[in-house]
Amino acid sequence: MIFKYDGSFEGFLTAVFSVYEFKCENVTIIKETQHVESLFEETEVVITSEEKANRVWKKIQQKTGSKGSRQIYWAFLSELSGVENTLFQYIQHAINSTKNITTDYSNQAVLEVSQIVKKVGREKHRMDAFVRFRKTKDNIYFATIEPDFNVLPLNAKHFKNRYADQHWCIYDLKRNYGIYYDLDSVEIIQLELPNSILNTSTDFFTAEEMQFQQLWKNYFDSTNIKSRKNTKLHQQHVPKRYWKYLSEKYL
């Protein structure tokens, strides 16, 4: 049986609730947007319910502790196709087991979830590192990114602690939403951005901005040791797909 949900985390948890409610076997949980109608399989449309989601979440927390529930959320943010089914197996294994299963790495679902979490964690950490703020004319430090996974919700706390005294915004161009900090709290926002946003045009950005990018690029080049050149290692650490957001690479 197929369970279609709206793509949100609550929606997914509600879907898990429904599977247990209907006592189904052989289930597939899938986002509405990814679903292709099938003649042979029954489909159930899940209506997201905060109450049902909370009940499932509580049960998960009780069974797997803070580590397991964190892993489930992080793996969900990977948006990998089929991740819902791996997560469902993980949750089932947790609920059926009397022990906490978070380190049961010889179980296929547990191992897979831990590997996905590792990838998501790496991407989150990369965004902590690769965000490059550019100062706008109205004094907002503004950055655009396109992470492989939907990690922006995980980055908010880090940037809030670090840049407590400046307005900043990090915008995910791929998923078309951003997080904005107004010296008080972090909010989710949606903007209409011009295509030219990657150019540091003085229509939006301060005149100094380009100068600082130049200085940074200059530093980047000067701190390199030519006799130790190692392009492979360099690209392994700074994969090419991120270059268009890194002024030291695109200038």
């Binding site: 902590d128 690769f130 130790r228």
Partner: peptide, 23 residues
């Protein structure tokens, strides 16, 4: 960063970029 100032070094270190020699 307890005083709403600039910066926080309580977490793990972050490598913001890598030189062409991979450091």
């Amino acid at each position: 960063n307890t005083t709403k100032g600039l910066g926080d070094s309580s977490g793990m270190g972050i490598c913001h970029s890598y030189t062409e020699d991979g450091r």
